[in-house]
Design a protein around this nucleic acid. Structure first.
Lengths: 215, 215
DNA sequence: CCCTCAGCCTAAACCCTGTAGGCAGAAAAC
DNA sequence: GTTTTCTGCCTACAGGGTTTAGGCTGAGGG
């Protein structure tokens, strides 16, 4: 096997492949170096350290997820868009488990500040705009939605749902219905003390509250 | 410092304390041995391996969480019980972060089959019985509830909510309202093909779908 | 007394992360 | 052409971790 020169994206791609095959815990510099046919210290020319390597995987993962979500919600609104959004997340977690795991960790600031992170938030907000939510409630709904997606996929992944019937596909369908129902009938805030400065803007510094992580 | 003889629960207790102080990743056999004033290999008389040590922490965590939930929902029903359940989880995650982390991992079968795990499911089901849910929908609601709790606490912990206002306490309150609203108005299943064998029993093999993990 | 065993120890194999310094070849400068 | 620079790899090593194997010691039992 002839050895092409390494570069950072090659190193990250190999780490990403390894993560999806064997889980994120298997991504060590040693293992990646072995797969690339070099000695471990040689990788330090291309990635700063182990955490930077994992941030690279997180970045790839975020771009992938964002692209999937964009495709899934394009041209849809209301429940169909919501279902698309949710299913994109679940399919991502199932198709690329290592990449998905890479989004469950606390990442460096570059990942949180990336364009993909911002796009993902915007896409989620776009889905929520199909529901008649008060503007200052949108951030709460976004967070709850992201929490639910992530929580569900985590529990599914670690087997928490394996111990009783029915299988998780049915519960997933029910969850989509439930979330749609919740968003259509989002409860009014009981306290009238709304703060004047809480517009749910998605400014450029916003990392996704919808499933990926931040520093 | 005189050295009392070690035993498995002492070793696990030290690991638990270390987890809460420095995070679950800091729990290595070496670190625990150092804190106990013994050499690392000496721990193998008391715990089988690293995974078993972490399972020990998970077991302690589960018992703690279950006790907290039991206290929080006792004598309450409806929204108050739900709020108590949710707040017990959140307080647990904040008071004992390492213990909480220990419940986010895939554990050995003993943890999933423990009495505490079963009790936790039963307590959650008891809370849900305060809502007018069809019996065969209860499992879906339980899973969604557990997913949401866990997802929220995870995202909060890794800082996903740090990037825009308002703070997460407000979103938490809104989430409690939202979940209460959802459970009160749980959507009917659209497909009439209910399977005949799907009674939502909480048999003794049931591990908690409400936040802890399974093998 | 001797034997057993619990509960610790050391030694060592193997793995990982990261730093320091060295080497070789290609490209740029003279 | 030669010399210099730099990229991109290497080895060596320090320091940390996990685990197995075998040894030692003191207490308890026969």
């Amino acid at each position: 096997m002839s050895r092409a020169p390494l570069n950072p994206s090659t190193v990250v791609a190999e780490a990403t492949a390894l993560a999806d095959e064997s889980g994120l815990d298997a991504v060590t510099l040693s293992a990646v170096a072995r797969r690339l046919g070099v000695r471990t210290p040689s990788l330090y020319f291309h990635v700063r350290d182990h955490a930077a390597l994992l941030d690279g995987v997180s970045t790839v993962a975020l771009a992938d997820l964002t692209a999937r979500v964009a495709r899934a919600v394009a041209g849809r609104s209301g429940r169909a868009a919501l279902a698309g959004l949710l299913q994109a997340h679940r399919a991502f977690a199932q198709d690329a488990p290592g990449r998905w795991q890479a989004l469950q960790r606390r990442t460096g600031p570059d990942v949180a500040a990336s364009d993909a992170a911002r796009t993902l938030v915007e896409l989620t907000d776009a889905v929520l705009r199909g529901y008649d939510l008060p503007p200052d409630e949108r951030v709460h709904a976004t967070r709850l939605l992201g929490a639910t997606i992530n929580g569900y996929l985590t529990l599914e992944r670690v087997g928490s749902f394996d111990h009783r019937e029915p299988g998780t596909d049915v519960s997933w369908d029910r969850a989509v219905d439930a979330l749609d129902s919740l968003l259509r009938g989002w409860p009014a805030a009981s306290a009238p003390a709304t703060r004047p400065g809480t517009a749910p803007g998605t400014g450029p510094g916003t990392a996704p509250e919808t499933g990926s992580t931040a520093p």
